[in-house]
Structures are given as C-alpha cells and as structure tokens.
C-alpha cells in the first residue's frame, strides 16, 4: 500500500469577531474561537502507481488533506502512513520520497536563475552529481527548459516558471507526488504540456499521484480514481466512469445533420429540446431511461443523421455531485 489514511481529522481554532470598533476592542482582551472541522474522519488507501484526484468545492478540505499527507500539518486525530512512514515525523527518508507541487506557490528562488534552485535541491536531496546531470538533462528535454534556466526566476513567464517548478520538484525522483492545482493560471498549451509530463512521469517511474484541481481537463487526463470531498468528508470514492454513472444527469446525445428542413429543426429543438452547437450539431443530456425513446424517434425522423451517445461533461457531473452532497448535509443538519 502506498498511502494509508485512517480517520484523518483536522480541526482548526479560528478566531471570531463581530464587526465594529467595540467588538474589536473586546476581542483584544477576550478572543473567542470557533472550531472548524476542515477534515472529518477521512479514510482511504492508495495503491502504488495509482493516480487519484481529490475533487470538491473551495474549502472542502482537499488541500488540508494533501498538507497532512505531506507532513506539513499535524492531524488533530487519525493516522496517515505514506509507504509505511508517518508524515509529521518529517524523517529524511520520507521527505526524499515525496514532492508537493503547488500551482499558487513556488519553491524556486525568486531572485536567482532556476539552475541555482536545482543545484540547491541537488545538495539538499543528496543526489550524486552524475545522476543529477542525467535527470536534469532528461527533465530539460521533456519540459523544454533549455532556453531559460539561466535567467532570474522573476523574469520568467508563469508557464516557464511552472515547468521549472516541476523540474525542481522531481529532481530527486519522488515515488509519491502531491499536486495542488498544478495548472492554475497557465495557458492551454502549457496546461496540456504539464498534464502530458505528469502522465509520462507516472508511467515511467510508477509514482503514485494525488491531485487536487478545479480544472476538469486535469482530472480527466490525470486521475483514474476520484475522491469527492465535501466539508471534510469523503462523499464518493471510485473511478471516473462510476462517478459519471452515479452523479451524471444521464447520457449526452449528440446529433450531426448535414442539412435540416424546418420540420426537422422543429423536432430537434422544439420537440426533443436539444440545443444547437457548432458545425450543424445538436446535443442534449438525456435521462438514462429516456435514451432509447429519443434514439428511436431520431432514427425514424432523421435517418441520415449521425447520432452519438457519450458521457456528459465532467463539470456538469460534479455540479450535480456537489449539489447532492450539500442536500445530504443539510438533511443531516
């Protein structure tokens, strides 16, 4: 087992204060705190080499979980083992076996070229020089770092910086990757490059990947298993397909027709309630028990149409999943 998590809980004490001068003065002498249960008895296992996506709305407890798994935060209660080690002990062996990449924070030294940060990591992670050179060459080729590792980090674009971040984070060849919003703010091209790189790293090294992201492309591309977290509680644990089947509003029917008559258009939009998309196509998410009826009608009235049935967009699935989780929470409250 690569990652074992049992009843992991994190409770924060958050100071509370009413607005206004009087309450501010009062809080100077007597501060009141409220308990916030950021993660609540979360349990799961991850097998070596698995790619898991933590999904949930803002403030769901994803990042807190990731930070406890990487040893930055001490759990209030519960147990975590990463390859048999307790993260909060911060043992050298543990820290050498993991990495955390945060899209919004950087480890590269702002005023120096990225190559100096790489060199510092070489020394800190105790990587033999020969091995370091080989890995750096490999990462440089994969991430296309050639042209800018000698410029101060402050002069790099966000995309260039993120690619250097990945190189710095993976020089020591960690077996477990924690990725917190790794593609946030990047342009489409760099996002794709980052995803492909993570994919290749996972396949080549067999590393375990735990990812949080609000970008559905990231999730669809990187994660093969989804853990849905809401208010610190795991609401779903399964494959992407299972998630779509369980929370999906139905199947996505897409119809492509070369040229339509007025009557056919009326059928598509008026009767079937489909919405027109690009390149003479119409689509609609249909409840599973209605799919057959709609397909029959389409084949009858539009025999020349090209009809495909697929999964609805992940975003739509997640919106429903989050909504369902919220309803269940409100019912329980």
């Amino acid at each position: 087992m690569s990652v074992q998590v049992r009843d992991l809980t994190k409770v924060y004490q958050v100071p509370v204060k009413q607005p206004g001068l009087l309450s501010t003065l009062r809080s100077v002498f007597h501060r009141e705190y409220r308990e916030v249960r950021a993660v609540d008895r979360v349990s799961f296992n991850v097998e070596p080499g698995e790619r898991v996506g933590f999904l949930g709305p803002n403030g769901a407890g994803k990042t807190t979980t990731l930070k406890m798994l990487s040893g930055l935060l001490h759990p209030t209660s519960g147990e975590v083992r990463i390859e048999g080690r307790r993260p909060q002990d911060r043992s050298v062996d543990f820290l050498k076996s993991i990495t955390l990449v945060m899209g919004q924070k950087q480890q590269l030294i702002w005023d120096l070229p990225a190559s100096d940060s790489f060199e510092l990591n070489r020394a800190l992670f105790d990587i033999p020089r020969q091995v370091y050179r080989e890995r750096l060459d490999e990462l440089t080729a994969l991430l296309g770092l050639d042209e800018f590792t000698d410029q101060p980090v402050r002069n790099l674009s966000l995309g260039q910086r993120m690619r250097c971040e990945l190189a710095a984070a993976l020089l020591h060849r960690p077996g477990t990757l924690f990725l917190d919003e790794p593609t946030i703010g990047l342009d489409v091209e760099v996002q794709a490059q980052v995803r492909q790189f993570i994919d290749a790293y996972n396949r080549n090294t067999g590393a375990t990947v735990l990812l949080t992201s609000h970008d559905m492309e990231d999730v669809a591309h990187i994660a093969e298993r989804i853990l849905l977290i809401d208010h610190g509680v795991v609401r779903f644990d399964g494959s992407l397909g299972e998630l779509q089947r369980r929370f999906g509003p139905g199947r996505l029917l897409t119809v492509k027709v070369g040229r339509t008559t007025e009557a056919q258009e009326h059928l598509l939009t008026g009767v079937l309630g489909m919405s027109a998309g690009a390149a003479a196509s119409w689509s609609k998410t249909v409840a599973p028990d209605e799919v057959n009826a709609v397909l029959t009608r389409l084949l009858q009235d539009l025999p020349s149409a090209e009809v495909s049935v697929g999964e609805p967009p992940l975003r739509e699935v997640l919106t429903r999943a989050f909504g369902e989780a919220r309803e269940r929470r409100e019912e329980g409250a």
Binding site: L72, R90, V92, L95, K105, Q107, N121, L124, F125
Partner: peptide, 12 residues
C-alpha cells in the same frame, strides 16, 4: 505567503 510549506518539505 505560504511558501514556508516548500521550505519545510526539504529533507533537512
């Protein structure tokens, strides 16, 4: 800035 996280992740 929250970057202490990344300092604390170094194996030292």
């Amino acid at each position: 800035r929250g970057t202490l996280d990344l300092v604390l992740l170094k194996p030292a």
